[in-house]
């Protein structure tokens, strides 16, 4: 009888002022946390394999770059017009650096880079280009497809929303 009452109280609580205030506080906290600090996102596509698989769920930690700039090797979340649709890419070059792909190998300022996160073979060749100030150069980890079909390039730092939580 008591259990029944408790179950019914849990699913159909009486709308007392105290309950309304509690529910309001929880809703506000959830809105602030999941709307502004840790926004959930769903990965669609395989451009970041094997680090991030298609269909996975993650959270964008918005305070990741509050006091620092992205570093080479960081995975970042890039926005379009808003935050509903974003891109997940890896930073491979920072501002004022020369970036180049030669037969699939990444060269920064002419020096070959070690990329332990790559698993798929790559044969990309991209002439050298300098990254503009306040920008970073981002690429996906899965470079097995043709370069023309892959979404990558230089983006402004202001477009970086944060980084994935894990």
């Amino acid at each position: 009888m008591l259990l029944n009452r408790r179950v019914s109280q849990f699913f159909f609580p009486s709308l007392t002022p105290a309950f309304m205030i509690r529910a309001g506080c929880i809703a506000l906290a959830a809105y602030l946390i999941f709307g502004h600090l840790l926004t959930p996102f769903w990965i669609k596509g395989n451009s970041m394999e094997p680090a991030y698989q298609n269909g996975e769920v993650n959270f964008c930690w918005k305070l990741r770059y509050l006091f620092s700039k992205p570093r080479r090797g960081d995975v970042v979340v890039i926005r379009f017009a808003g935050q509903r649709i974003t891109l997940l890419k890896r930073v491979i070059a920072l501002e004022n650096e020369e970036v180049e792909f030669r037969n699939g190998r990444l060269l920064i300022d002419g020096k070959e880079q070690n990329e332990p996160y790559l698993r798929h073979p790559c044969n990309w060749t991209l002439p050298s280009r300098r990254v503009e100030p306040d920008s970073v150069y981002v690429v996906g980890d899965n470079r097995s497809g043709p370069m023309q079909n892959h979404v990558f390039g230089q983006t402004s730092l202001s477009r970086i929303l944060g980084g994935p939580l894990w």
Partner: peptide
């Protein structure tokens, strides 16, 4: 279409910035 940002810079004109998928 997502993330609409609509502005009316002058009478009879609407400028919209959004994401198309």
């Amino acid at each position: 279409f997502h993330d609409f940002m609509i502005a009316f810079p002058q009478e009879g004109e609407a400028r919209v910035r959004l994401t198309a998928r």
